[in-house]
Amino acid sequence: MADNKVKEIYNYRQSIWLDFIDRAIMRTGKLERMIEDDGLRGVTSNPAIFEKAFASSADYDEDISARADSELSDEQLFYELAISDIRKAADLFYGVYNGKVVGADGFVSLEVSPELALETEDTISQALDLWQRVDRKNVMIKIPGTKPCLPAIRKAIAAGLNVNVTLLFGLERYEAVTDAIITGLEDRLAKGEPVSGIASVASFFLSRIDILVDPMLEEKGLKDLKGETAIALAKEAYAIYKRVFSGERWQQLADQGAKPQRLLWASTGVKDTTVKDTKYVEALIGPDTVNTAPLDTINAFRDHGIVNPTLESGLETAGNTLRQVKNAGIDLEAVSQQLETEGIQKFKEPYQKMLQAIAAKRKKKKEL
């Protein structure tokens, strides 16, 4: 499929990952076909995705029933099943991971419990446990980029884990995350341990920003800026990326084989039906980045997406957009904090719903 528009994005050194996983997509061979036809280079998951997978099919019922009488808690049972799925997906992507540049891509992400999003020590403990249990080189453990989890990110990197830092909405926090990554690599190097095999991404969320900011802009008579804030922030984040992962401090790590943490554009499914459904893919195509997109967005881009190197264009416009937003009295750091708080809750709710579903299925089995 030489004319596949999704696959064409990789010509501009951006990797497309799928923000979705369930057993059916692996069982039917669809995921393998997407790797081949679309040039898909990774998968991300989160509690909401797993909740949909558990709720929308009977694929997990047999495994849950078989463990209904076990001493595992509902959460432990969930992770046992999720780890099995993540291993299968990681194995499907191992050829990508083990490609011409080993470890450049081919990663599958598994997230720590959203209940731990503000807990430093419990997060690092679960991250280490999941890493050991999945036991795949091409797995990333997702850790939220909250203030309490910054030390956990540093410790995870220092311990040699691949890390996907999630729930990023603001520039200040993103830069703090890059420092945690670099410091973790420095800690590891100081212990005489290699830094060359560690990969990381920083998941910068997009559509949720515009959904919150756009009504504020309309109230202030700035309707022409609707849908522009998230993209402008992403371009500013990329400028931070290029600055941070250069210079003397980074070069000392790069000389030892360290890889810079790539920016990953997340929340790229369009939530505003008046906006083109491929917007958050088309606007941010550029080098050494990742876009993790829902299945519907990938299908839409394959059908009518436009492939151009857009990430490094319009930088002056992006800067002007953010200045106008600031001058209008909209505090984007306050916005990012609100979105982080809401994001944690949006992951907690489906996570608890999924655990309740598991509990109900176990109870039903015991009553038979």
Rank of each mutant, 00 (worst) to 15 (best):
F50E: 00
Q126R: 00
V201I: 14
K364D: 12
C149Q: 15
D179Y: 13
T292I: 02
K30D: 02
V43Q: 01
M34H: 02
V43I: 11
I35D: 00
S84V: 05
A202Y: 11
N308R: 15
K7N: 09
A318Q: 12
D214C: 01
A104H: 07
L315Q: 14
S57L: 11
S15T: 00
L118I: 03
S84E: 12
Y174G: 11
P151G: 11
V307F: 08
N4H: 11
F50L: 05
F50D: 01
D135Q: 09
D74I: 10
G160V: 04
P294F: 00
I153D: 10
F20K: 04
I83S: 03
D91S: 10
M1R: 13
A82W: 08
E175V: 11
N308D: 14
I49V: 12
K52I: 06
R362G: 00
R41P: 01
R362W: 04
Q14V: 05
T317V: 13
A357E: 08
K7E: 14
R154F: 07
T268P: 08
A82E: 03
I209R: 06
K259L: 13
D296G: 08
R133W: 03
T178N: 10
D61Q: 10
E193M: 14
M354L: 15
D105Y: 07
N327P: 10
I124S: 06
T341A: 08
D135E: 13
K226F: 04
A58S: 14
A318S: 15
G160H: 09
I285H: 00
A199E: 03
V244S: 10
T297I: 02
Y97C: 05
P294S: 08
R33K: 12
A89F: 04
K5N: 15
L40E: 03
P215T: 06
G99W: 00
W250T: 10
A239N: 04
L225H: 09
V201N: 09
Q338M: 11
Y79I: 12
S65W: 08
S84D: 13
K353E: 07
T321G: 07
D214P: 06
E175N: 12
F169V: 05
T268S: 13
V112H: 02
R208G: 02
L217D: 04
L150S: 14
E175Q: 15
V281H: 01
G319M: 09
K147H: 12
D74M: 11
I83L: 06
Y94M: 09
R302P: 06
P144D: 13
A156L: 09
I25E: 01
P151W: 13
N320S: 15
R208C: 00
A360M: 05
A232G: 12
E312G: 14
A334P: 06
T292F: 03
L118D: 07
T317A: 13
I231A: 09
T28M: 01
K147R: 15
E8C: 06
W131D: 07
I141L: 12
K88P: 00
V195C: 05
A89N: 00
P287N: 02
I9H: 05
